[in-house]
Design a protein around this nucleic acid. Sequence first.
DNA 1: TTGAAAGCGCTAACAT
DNA 2: ATGTTAGCGCTTTCAA
Lengths: 344, 344
Amino acid sequence: MSNMTIKDIAEKAGVSKSTVSRVINNTGYVSGQIRERVNRIINEYAYQPSAIARGLSTKDSCMIGVVVPTASDGFFGRILEGISEVADKKGYTVMFCTTDNDPAKEQRALATMRGQRVRGLLITPAAGYLSTDGFSKLRSALENLGIPVVLIDRAAKNLNWDGVYFDNFNGAYIATENIVRSGYKKIGTITSDTSLQLGSDRLAGFRQALADAGIREDERFILTSNQPISTQQAFRMTCDWIRDGRLPEAVLLSNGAIVNGFLKAILAHGLSPDRDVYTVGFDYVQAVDILNMRYSYLSRDADNMGRIAMQMLLDHFDQKIPSRREYIVPAKLIVRECGGQQRQ
Amino acid sequence: MSNMTIKDIAEKAGVSKSTVSRVINNTGYVSGQIRERVNRIINEYAYQPSAIARGLSTKDSCMIGVVVPTASDGFFGRILEGISEVADKKGYTVMFCTTDNDPAKEQRALATMRGQRVRGLLITPAAGYLSTDGFSKLRSALENLGIPVVLIDRAAKNLNWDGVYFDNFNGAYIATENIVRSGYKKIGTITSDTSLQLGSDRLAGFRQALADAGIREDERFILTSNQPISTQQAFRMTCDWIRDGRLPEAVLLSNGAIVNGFLKAILAHGLSPDRDVYTVGFDYVQAVDILNMRYSYLSRDADNMGRIAMQMLLDHFDQKIPSRREYIVPAKLIVRECGGQQRQ
DNA sequence: TTGAAAGCGCTAACAT
DNA sequence: ATGTTAGCGCTTTCAA
């Protein structure tokens, strides 16, 4: 038989459904003898209780929802990995949806999650919410869920839910500080997504560090966009810097794609990524290992962010105290000297 | 009220549950007037039917299961992305589990999927199944599911399910052929995971192409492992080649990690990735763009593999004919000349 | 220690 | 065109 029910098992074992239910869930009293008999039947027929029926009955789906912009991006993939790891361990199964950074798809994803009666939600909001009113739709959709929500990576103003974020401001700050202390004066940056909290924080951290060091900003060294900046665009921007003869002595680059474009331009002009410029960026990129070059970076341990987020959700399930916590993953600068050891 | 039920809506609208059900599902007859009234109530209370209850009743969960080794790997992330895309579009929601290439975790994942009564399963088997008997456990677990299954990327002998695979043999073959035609004689390879079908196919394709070209194999140029080869290991292997003065004129590298290690070694020895060796590999790696180097590669369009796999599942749902199809994604070699255009 | 019965929120005959 | 009823496969009182 393809899918046995609890009733089938009960009959084969000559007991009632309740009894079978008890042995399955290890609840209530049931004699050792019967327990054994039932278990034998269960194994014999490889019976697997329907989580759906159980969910309907207990009003607990034991599912959690994960809504992220994309899975193909390494960062979110690793977050998903971390979430999945602790969810599995705790007996929750994860429902997965992708938004493509599209608010409309996000709304649909949330409706799906609501329909599935997930017990909690982990979400990285679709981009572009800093000012628009699409943002208030997210807020009310989240509120309508009526379940614990943990935001991941992208904070949105006035969104009063738990969250785990990277400390972007301080990350940019200590990175810039490191540059300053290394003795550089002509310091530049290419920072993208300034329309996201994440982006504006990075830019702000950079500026604050310069200010605190008493270094006057040179606007020609500060390239920003409120949109994502592609590798290709970063390449061009850097080429312009070089062509105009004003490549900064050191740069802070706000993500891996930008680092790649920057390095491409450096190499294309026959410059040395070790001697001609000091590169500091957000996120590790494979190329620096291959080039065996000097590179300092802020590593956003994504797996761990996922694990922490899931853990926060679990905490919510346990103590039903409605809390409002933010976990800010502390920024740590990893300094990779020229010829430094390989990141495994 | 947090979660309304169909009964609540029915009462507010002054109709029966059946009627509400009819308007929700757009089935059967219902007068325009009543339909409108019900819809008003539904919207007013933002009622979202329970997919769980519906699933129980219709015996269709509208869920599909995805079981992959990891999400943090870019390849599987993109596969997941592709799956997710068409699943969303067709109204299926995806349950996600990770196996970490561990057969035990895989078994647990399958049990979970069975419990959730997913309608179909997309799976990349945990590694190491070519010979072991853990393999037969997979087979029976899959059979016990009693639902359509589509294998992704990793074929396993005697596993009689639909599948979408990359044409690894021909990929390696045409890649090697390309090398031969380019006039190289001393041709080497670093091939990992030969214990997987995927790995042994790549090695076989390489050998066949050499044989067909009448080039005798030089075993010193052929480095293989039945395990994954890390970037670090590939680096060492290449260093050994160089140190011993027998770096091949051209190489076929079986994945991105190996390419990275190889390039690192080339650069570390002051060699030119353009002039001193012709590199051909499986998968694109970012570094070749940065280095703006000559590189030919077999691109395994992962998003598309995911989409195709999901589509095969859907086909199964429609025509309940138990078929057995294999979709072999044709291999295509992308030749990237030195200074070639950037892959966007 | 076990069983009977009601109910979870929906759908789907079957009546009307 | 709409309502009634009987499940779907479980859990959980409540009795026995």
